[in-house]
Computed example of a mutant assay.
Amino acid sequence: MSTITQSALQSSYPPVLPKSFNSNQPTTIRLYPLSNYTFGTKETQPEEDPSVLARLKRLEEHYNQHGMRRTCEGILVCHEHNHPHILMLQIANAFFKLPGDYLHPEDEEIEGFKARLNERLAPVGTQFTGEGVNDEWQIGDTLAQWWRPNFETFMYPFIPAHVTRPKECKKLYFIQLPRRKVLSVPKNMKLLAVPLFELYDNTARYGPQLSAIPHLLSRYNFEFVDDNGNVVAVTPGGGPDPSSLQPIVLAGGDEMRVETNGDDFPYGMIC
Rank of each mutant, 00 (worst) to 15 (best):
E80R: 15
E80T: 10
N82L: 01
P84E: 04
H85I: 12
L89K: 04
N93P: 00
N93K: 15
A94S: 11
F96K: 03
K97L: 09
L98C: 07
P99N: 05
D101Y: 10
P105G: 05
D107F: 07
I110G: 00
E111M: 10
L117I: 07
N118P: 00
A122F: 06
F128P: 02
V133I: 14
N134L: 13
N134P: 03
N134I: 07
D135F: 05
W137Y: 15
D141Q: 15
D141G: 02
L143T: 08
L143C: 09
A144R: 10
Q145A: 12
Q145D: 03
W147N: 04
R148L: 02
R148T: 09
N150M: 07
F151G: 05
E152W: 04
T153E: 06
Y156I: 08
P157C: 09
P157K: 12
P157D: 09
R165E: 13
R165W: 00
P166F: 09
C169S: 09
C169G: 06
K170V: 07
L172R: 01
L177D: 03
V182E: 01
N188E: 01
L192H: 04
E198A: 12
L199K: 06
L199M: 08
Y200N: 10
N202H: 10
N202K: 09
R205K: 14
R205A: 08
Y206E: 02
